[in-house]
């Protein structure tokens, strides 16, 4: 993995970042201080534009995800809720089986069985 030391401060990442375009700062504050436990690290939309454009081939996405994991206690509620939901039922947004069956039937789609509860937790937390 390429580390932020490969960053030559050219600013290309910022010019292609969709978050920067609407006034958020997903990258700038992060590259300036990779250890910052800054909320901005959660603004990245995972569009990979910065990484693709980076002349230093810095693994910005990988670094961003590492940093999120390091500060996960400060995750925004939306992220936290989606993750807890995945752990509990395997889906980022819980849909009861009955409701799913109804919607799919109305659309003429074949039935889908939801994953067993707790399966995602078991896969993700195998060592805990």
């Amino acid at each position: 993995m390429n580390h932020p030391e490969s960053c030559i401060q050219c600013g290309t990442c910022v010019t292609v970042c969709p978050v920067e375009m609407v006034g958020g700062h997903a990258i700038v504050s992060f590259l300036a201080d990779p250890d910052a436990t800054d909320y901005s690290v959660w603004l990245c939309t995972s569009c990979w534009r910065c990484q693709e454009a980076c002349p230093g081939e810095v693994d910005i996405y990988g670094l961003m995800m590492e940093q999120r994991r390091a500060v996960s206690l400060q995750a925004p509620t939306g992220y936290r809720a989606a993750f807890e939901s995945v752990l509990a039922c395997g889906l980022a947004l819980e849909v009861p089986q009955g409701e799913l069956d109804q919607v799919r039937a109305a659309w003429g789609l074949e039935p889908v069985r939801l994953p067993p509860p707790g399966l995602a937790r078991a896969l993700l937390c195998a060592d805990e």
């Binding site: 992220y79 993750f83 995945v86 980022a92 939801l114 399966l119």
Partner: peptide, 14 residues
């Protein structure tokens, strides 16, 4: 059948 959420980008964030 019984597929889980792919985890993008939520699970990877944690």
């Amino acid at each position: 059948q019984e597929a889980v959420c792919c985890g993008s980008p939520v699970v990877e964030s944690f």
